[in-house]
């Protein structure tokens, strides 16, 4: 590297990270190293939880971008997880190489979001939330009735994913695949937010009129974040389909969309670290509750009632005590 380009690089990096953010960057690297050792220490059942956590985290990073930067709430984000999962599943069952089937998942999810986003993003606030919720209900009923999607039974007998001749047939393989996925979406989100486009997005969150008057194409950017958030959820869905090997409409309930929202809000909107922390926290809490609710003597509806109750309580607690979410609050007070 020449001296000049080295200096350019340094200027570039220091422009991305002010001195305080330098510290944050080291946190990131340390965190990633620690987390990447975790799968080795987990029992088989816990590995499944770890994978599901990572998949949620991928979707939540996208949702947090959407909610934090485009100022839009999606109550149907799991639609895109479902679209990604079914895309991978259907393609793989129709003899597409599994890796290609996986790559198609985020693309189809993003295209779907772009398609529905044009009319939906004209709506504001609660209207968008309801529209996305309606979208998911429609999608679930279509999938439940469609013969080509296996109806209510769904798709079964998916092959394992294989990458360059290496077949991912153990939970541990998927744990690392998911980690790579989380890293990828976090990096994409980070670079996007720090770029010219990201500045436009952050600007329109608090000053739409002035942003637009500065040349920010507000509608196009909103659509872009919506599509990106859908792509992240879609990629998570694609990995999910290969991990479990079967899919059904019931795997993507509205409760999953709500879980995503709670994760994003608890961690802190517009914060990548917040999205990851929120996903981890909620997953662990839900896991503990499920263990509790499936004790002998508990009614069969206990798990879902308990999770709804906990989501509600957590949302209320966050709104009351840490309205910006955990990570942004910690960052501000440090």
């Amino acid at each position: 590297m020449t001296e000049r380009s080295e200096r350019h690089d340094r200027v570039f990096w220091s422009s991305l990270f002010s001195s305080r953010q330098d510290g944050i960057r080291w946190w990131w690297i340390a965190g990633a190293l620690i987390v990447s050792a975790v799968p080795l220490l987990l029992a088989p059942g816990q590995l499944t939880t770890f994978v599901l956590l990572g998949l949620s985290a991928m979707a939540v990073v996208g949702l947090s971008l959407l909610m934090g930067y485009a100022g839009q709430v999606s109550l149907g984000q799991a639609s895109f997880t479902a679209i990604g999962a079914y895309t991978s599943g259907l393609l793989a069952l129709h003899h597409t190489p599994p890796l290609l089937a996986l790559l198609a998942a985020p693309i189809v999810a993003a295209l779907a979001a772009a398609g529905v986003g044009v009319p939906i993003l004209r709506l504001r606030g609660h209207q968008l939330a309801f529209a996305t919720l309606a979208l998911q209900l429609i999608l679930l009923s279509v999938l439940g009735d469609a013969d080509w999607a296996g109806g209510a039974v769904g798709l079964q007998g998916l092959p394992y994913l294989s990458i360059g001749g290496f077949e991912l047939d153990a939970d541990l393989d998927y744990a690392y695949l998911v980690l790579a996925g989380v890293l990828l979406v976090s990096l994409i989100a980070h670079r996007l937010v720090r770029s010219r486009v990201g500045r436009g997005l952050r600007a329109l969150a608090t000053g739409e009129t002035a942003a637009e008057a500065s040349g920010v194409p507000v509608g196009a950017y909103r659509l872009l974040v919506f599509a990106v958030s859908a792509a992240f959820a879609g990629l998570a869905g694609g990995i999910y389909s290969f991990f479990l090997g079967y899919l059904a409409p019931g795997s993507f309930p509205v409760l999953l969309s709500i879980e995503y929202v709670v994760m994003a809000v608890v961690g802190g909107l517009g914060s990548i670290g917040g999205a990851l922390l929120g996903a981890a926290l909620i997953t662990v809490v839900v896991q503990l509750l499920t263990t509790l609710a499936t004790q002998p003597g508990m009614p069969s509806y206990a798990p879902s009632v308990l999770s709804y109750a906990v989501y509600a309580l957590l949302l209320i607690a966050v709104v009351l005590f840490v309205p910006k979410g955990i990570v942004p609050t910690l960052r501000r007070s440090s």
């Binding site: 770029s195 010219r196 942003a211 500065s214 920010v216 872009l224």
Partner: peptide, 16 residues
Amino acid sequence: MVGAHAVTRAGPVAAV
């Protein structure tokens, strides 16, 4: 810097 939006072009792909 937001004000420079009108005279710049780099899109999301270039940034990512």
